[in-house]
């Protein structure tokens, strides 16, 4: 029995060492990507192509989800607020929850599962089919040519996607409460406008989405580049991208929120 306990403890220790090692390895890779970003910035066409795949192709899911999230928020908010006779504050509720939290967070979660997994799978497959090795043999650095453009495209897309998500959400809330239920349009907007502050709400939401963009794409490109060059390896890496980035998004959100809104309001 004691041997079993020892081996269980050993197992835990092994896992901890492994994860710390991996974290360090990922950080080194992240810095490497940043150092080798010169090519993508000089040849912006490379980033443009990836912007299409990460940004434009994620639009549909972002727009539709944003609309529905906003509509649900509007409906639920109205149900609750009308009990206190303050249904005109529903605009404030929808806008604040979207701009501060739901916009950046849900958009980032969707982005991780839509674009992040695609990035991992693509880089992982390029590695498995020796395309990255072939590139290295042609004296072209795969990190500069393949990884960095995808990274920057993700970083650029994320804030835009989050903003589009929030706007669609506000529109969805407006649609349900003002157009369908009949809340007064003037007070919907004016209450929202007096409650939402540019610096504390919108700018902070924007900053959050920038952080999420960096985190999600960094995880996605690392998992792809690090994936074992087999079919199971790539599929495992894709799953890890989605799981890890979702956890990182939520954890990071808490940390950022604590920093941003501490002492304010």
């Amino acid at each position: 029995m004691p041997r079993r306990i020892v081996s269980a403890v050993q197992h835990i220790g092994h896992r901890v060492i492994e994860s710390i090692w991996r974290l360090g390895y990922a950080s080194r890779f992240f810095i490497l990507v940043l150092l080798k970003s010169g090519t993508s910035l000089r040849r912006f066409g490379l980033v443009m192509r990836e912007l299409y795949f990460t940004g434009v192709l994620s639009l549909i899911i972002i727009v539709v989800s944003g609309l529905f999230v906003g509509m649900v928020l509007g409906l639920q908010g109205y149900e609750t607020l009308q009990k206190y006779g303050s249904e005109s504050a529903v605009g404030t509720l929808v806008a604040l929850s979207l701009v501060r939290e739901l916009g950046p967070v849900v958009a980032a979660l969707l982005f991780a599962s839509r674009a992040g997994s695609a990035i991992t799978a693509e880089i992982g497959l390029m590695k498995a089919t020796e395309q990255l090795a072939a590139m290295g043999m042609m004296a072209v650095d795969p990190v500069a040519r393949v990884v960095a453009p995808r990274f920057w495209a993700g970083v650029i897309s994320m804030p835009f996607l989050a903003a589009i998500f929030s706007v669609m959400g506000v529109f969805g809330g407006y649609l349900v409460t003002v157009v369908f239920i009949g809340v007064d349009e003037g007070s919907f907007w004016s209450q929202m406008q007096s409650a939402v502050d540019f610096r504390f709400d919108i700018l902070n939401g924007f900053i959050k989405s920038c952080f999420f963009g960096v985190a999600v794409t960094a995880i996605a490109v690392f998992e792809g580049y690090d994936a074992p060059p087999t079919a199971e390896g790539v599929s495992g890496a894709t799953t890890r991208t989605v799981v890890t980035s979702s956890l990182v998004i939520l954890g990071l959100d808490f940390i950022l929120t604590a920093f941003m809104f501490r002492g304010v309001s």
Binding site: E122, L125, M126, T129, E130, Q131, A133, A134, M135, G136, M137, M138, A139, D141
Partner: peptide, 20 residues
């Protein structure tokens, strides 16, 4: 090394063409 590799070519087992 990268300069040297421009004088080399390599054909990988399954071609390793860039699929995109």
């Amino acid at each position: 090394l990268f300069r040297l590799r421009r004088k080399m070519g390599m054909l990988f087992q399954f071609g390793a063409l860039f699929t995109d």
